[in-house]
Design a protein around this nucleic acid. Structure first.
Lengths: 189, 189
DNA sequence: GAAATCATTTGCCATTTGGCAAATAGCCTC
DNA sequence: GAGGCTATTTGCCAAATGGCAAATGATTTC
């Protein structure tokens, strides 16, 4: 619970009353490994803050391959922000890579916070901006690096994940096939 | 000028007085082809709205190659938003791909608008979010597609640019070498 | 308009990655 | 612990892409 508040406070000030209100709006949820937090085709009705565990966002591309778009780490929010804001069906799945402890905000709770807590929208805007900038900055260099460098960069970013995640998730995230990733792993050791 | 207002109004309401104020805060600037709007190492002090022309954002990667991170089209804002907000030096160049007609806001003007026009921050937040989401959505699929598909996607997105942009810009944007792109072009015709 | 400069294409070959299928390893269930 | 699954590795070869340099084409400059 505190990790949520610590996180929020990085982006703006909240008094104790506001903090209590925010916490009262949350529900706890355990999402077991492989379970989905949200699914493509459905309009997202909840936002999750990850207390523990790793989620991934994935979709099916035009060839029908399942692509891992990105991983979401502990102490970050998870939602298809575009679909959530516009209240339109998402085109992505959000799935637990490991069993996760989540704090959940419903759409309603989220909107109540927006209209009750003056600095809420500003904080949320900053969080959204930061998260998106990070995604762009992680994706951009991937295009100009070869697969081995991308894998090494992943190892640095998610050292604990590399051997707990199915090869298929990781390969599609890196934009290569499973067998290529397997060979890259072999060459590195 | 109107295109700026049209653009802003997509993201929130502004009355005539606010519109006039915004326009009074802008300056016109013509940026000739190849000139820089901002440079890596310098803290950005201006935001541009592109009335006409195309900009690109580029940087040098660890190998020393110049990489085009993305192109910015007419009727969009151009700035390294992260550096601008945090007032820290940028790591990117913003350069005119074609001669551009720009509307410029200085940092000071931008901040005055923020404190004068109530819905300003909200509008800016939405614009920022939208721009970043578009970047993520353009980058993500590039990893799972081959170079030819990426080039074809570029052609669809920027049909007028493909033959006006130096091969080198385009190749680094697509994550391939100039010669590969040249061969891809040949095979498509 | 000729020379100089820069951009693009092409040839040649090396390297990387993909596609497919078989082999191996790991894990789960009974 | 023996199947029966699933995940990963590996072999084989094809296709895509890179690296380098030369050739060609385009543009600028004087």
């Amino acid at each position: 619970m505190e990790s949520l508040i610590d996180y929020l406070l990085q982006f703006g000030h909240l008094n104790q009353q506001q903090i209590d209100l925010i916490l009262r709006k949350t529900t706890s949820l355990e999402l077991k490994k492989d379970e989905y937090f949200s699914e493509a085709g459905k309009t997202p009705k909840r936002i999750a803050f990850i207390l523990e565990g790793i989620l991934r966002v994935c979709y099916y591309n035009s060839k029908g391959d399942e692509i891992t778009k990105y991983f979401i780490e502990e102490h970050h929010f998870a939602v298809d922000i575009n679909s959530f804001n516009q209240k339109i069906p998402s085109s992505e799945y959000v799935q637990a890579v490991t069993t996760c402890q989540l704090l959940i905000f419903t759409t309603q709770a989220w909107e109540e916070l927006s209209s009750t807590i003056i600095p809420w929208d500003g904080i949320v805007a900053k969080i959204t901006e930061r998260a998106l900038i990070e995604k762009v900055n992680k994706l951009s260099p991937m295009l100009s690096e070869d697969a081995t460098s991308r894998y090494l960069a992943f190892l640095e970013k998610f050292p604990s994940l590399a051997n707990r995640v199915p090869l298929s998730y990781l390969a599609s995230y890196l934009g290569i096939t499973q067998s290529s990733l397997s060979r890259i792993r072999k060459n590195i050791r």
